[in-house]
């Protein structure tokens, strides 16, 4: 079973010490090499392209797993970049890859910037969207302009391009949509982990002579957390299906609800943990900081809400429900 293989892989290479180093911005090169050796960068491609030939359900399972394990490497980004590159008929990444929009092309030269690219200094190439076309930009095509960071501590660098652009290829679908759909699955996975930790903590932590989970007020918060997880999981599936048929409004709907669940779920999980959930010595922070990071990436909440809200208003009172059933 693929999920079991991945769990063992992450168990072996992402121990607490490694995760703590990644939270300081350190590249876990050995872990990346193992992940790459197991074929994960191509996981979303069909068998004949060297991929895993996964069903939609299996794709969701793998992407949620990356979120559940808070893998501090650009594995999901590389998978998505390769999916886009393959769809466009461009060469695949030969190492870690990123997803970005930005830059301008004039006179055959790519210049300008892209902001907050995950692990930009460590990537082999970038799947870059410029003016509706996709370019496979090699690492030599950019320099690091500013070293910024996500709330997880992982790098998000702003980069400056200077590259003799090739022809590129037409984009199969919106690059932000690709990133937003991937993040929705990761959010659902991180909420799985947050619920598991919260259930374990409240079932074992004793106050007033009984486990916290015996208190009705706590039980009801756990129920709300389960509701947010359910919504995030369904939202990710919705976004993934919409992406496959090129429906941006559907990606917006799924992405938005997952982003909302990220914030709601992280709040409940932290509150139910008490002070221990607010520390770096207890693992919840890996998931909450990831949730607070991912919910604002690849077009923020406002970007996607505006896109979907415009579609709703354009549909009008009579067309609204038919629009909802098409999502």
């Amino acid at each position: 079973m693929l999920a079991d293989m991945l769990e063992r892989l992450f168990d072996a290479h992402l121990d607490d010490a490694a995760l703590a180093r990644a939270a300081q911005g350190e590249w876990l090169g050995a872990a990346w090499d193992e992940i790459a050796a197991n074929g994960l960068p191509l996981a979303l491609l069909s068998d004949d392209r060297g991929g895993f030939g996964l069903s939609a359900a299996e794709t969701g399972e793998v992407l949620r797993l990356l979120g559940r394990r808070a893998v501090p490497l650009p594995v999901a980004e590389t998978m998505a970049a390769n999916r886009l590159l393959a769809a466009a008929g461009l060469p695949l990444a030969e190492g870690a890859a990123g997803l970005a929009e930005g830059g301008t092309i004039a006179g055959g030269r790519l210049t300008g910037t892209a902001s907050r690219v995950a692990w930009a200094d460590k990537l082999e190439c970038l799947a870059l969207s410029v003016g509706g076309r996709l370019y496979r930009v090699p690492r030599a095509g950019w320099t690091i302009a500013e070293a910024e960071h996500a709330l997880t501590g992982e790098p998000r660098e702003t980069i400056t391009f200077d590259w003799a652009a090739d022809e590129g290829a037409p984009l199969a679908h919106d690059l932000l949509a690709e990133g937003a759909a991937i993040r929705a699955f990761q959010i659902a996975g991180a909420l799985e982990a947050a619920l598991d930790l919260t259930l374990a903590h409240t079932s074992t932590r004793v106050q007033f002579g009984k486990p916290l989970a015996r208190f009705q007020a706590v039980q009801h918060e756990l129920a709300k957390l389960a509701g947010e997880l359910a919504c995030a999981t369904a939202a990710a599936d919705l976004a993934g299906e919409a992406l496959a048929r090129g429906d941006l409004a559907g990606v917006a709907a799924g992405s938005l609800r997952a982003r909302e669940a990220a914030g709601n779920g992280a709040s409940i999980a932290t509150q139910m943990h008490g002070a221990i959930g607010f520390t770096r010595e207890y693992p919840l922070h890996r998931h909450t900081t990831a949730l607070w990071t991912w919910r604002d990436e690849f077009g923020g909440q406002v970007h996607w809400a505006r896109l979907l809200g415009k579609a709703a208003l354009a549909a009008g009172a009579d067309g609204y429900w038919p629009m909802v059933t098409s999502l």
Binding site: C231, A235, L238, A253, R257, W304, A311, V324
Partner: peptide, 10 residues
Amino acid sequence: LGRVTARLAV
């Protein structure tokens, strides 16, 4: 309306 529609769709 975008946020409301997302909740409804999910």
